[in-house]
Computed example of a mutant assay.
Amino acid sequence: MSLYRNAIWFLNGIHQYTRKGYEAAFKDFEPQDLDVSVVGRSFMITGANSGIGRATAMAIAKKGGTVHMVCRNKDKAEEARVDITSESGNTEVYIHIVDMSETRKVWEFAEAFKKQYPALNVLINNAGCMVHKRELNTEGLEKNFATNTMGVYILTESLIPLLQKSRDPRVITVSSGGMLVQKLRVDDLQSEKGDFDAVMVYAQNKRQQVVLTQQWAKAYPLIHFSAMHPGWADTPAVSTSMPQFHQMMGERLRSAEQGADTVVWLALSRAAARTCGGQFFQDRTPVPAHLPLAWTHSSAEEIQSFMTQLETLARAIGHNLM
């Protein structure tokens, strides 16, 4: 079954996830969807100093939004902020230094942010990682899971009260089409069983994000939740974590701006706000979260187990999120 999933996914990817796939989809975009000003609206973007996060921050700054860049590296963040403010002419761009793999620090940051700022209109969970050997963070969580799933869970859950008080609140999570090859493994969330394959661990984390998005949309209907696949984009993260894939695809990869397009559309457009919450998007269009006949759906009991495990893990490291 995994061979079938991988084959179907890769064939779909060659047609849809590449630069040509974006160019084909672009023909059906409505240009006026992004003909908006978002002056006075605030946006938090994790992993905002490079790749898709940086392209998203730039696009939002150009539309007048207040941008909160959540980054791990202070020097790279400051360099990106200078470029964004210079090119956009928007000085409402702020840096917050947070390592998304350190879950306690993520929670502390979110709690401090709520006290300092009266509103947050849009949260964009973009930061991610692909660590190729099994490593643990200071709380004993596997690092990919800590960054891609628990960091997203804790930041989002902590900021939901602030989002609920804000006008037209939205949460967008940058997932991956790679999640289509994975079924949610509720008995092994941190990839402790079997061989450690970083690409599959990453895909599992991205499946976890999509399930989270679906559950949040049901639990908090006043907030518009969505997940998206940016396609195969030429970003520093891809070249570092998947060098062979990066080299093989070469010029077929999308630009970071093309990868960020759907994030920006989901964050800014009125059209996105009119879509049903909890969906998985690709090139501004909701697409199925499962491949045909791939048997990746989860039961209600499995999903409840997943959500309970996340809450338990959060509480175990001292986070009272509820």
Rank of each mutant, 00 (worst) to 15 (best):
I172T: 05
Q116C: 02
L266C: 14
N125Y: 08
S166N: 08
L321C: 09
V171G: 07
L136K: 14
V199M: 13
A59P: 10
V39S: 13
R315T: 00
M307T: 02
T285Y: 07
Q279D: 08
M150T: 04
M242Q: 10
S101D: 10
S298G: 05
S241K: 08
R270T: 00
A316F: 02
A57N: 08
P118E: 04
S86R: 15
F109V: 04
Q282C: 10
Y202E: 12
T275C: 15
L313N: 14
K27G: 07
L141T: 06
Q190T: 01
Q190M: 05
G53S: 11
Q182L: 06
T138W: 13
A217N: 13
D28I: 00
W295L: 15
L141G: 10
S299M: 10
A227L: 01
H132Y: 01
S86M: 15
I84F: 09
V174T: 14
A61P: 13
A233H: 05
I172F: 12
N137Q: 14
P236I: 03
R274K: 15
K76G: 06
V36N: 13
K115M: 07
V152I: 04
V152D: 14
G151M: 01
A7H: 07
N12A: 02
R254T: 00
L266I: 06
K62I: 00
V210G: 06
I317R: 15
L189F: 00
K27F: 02
P236H: 05
S241D: 10
V186T: 09
S239V: 02
L253W: 05
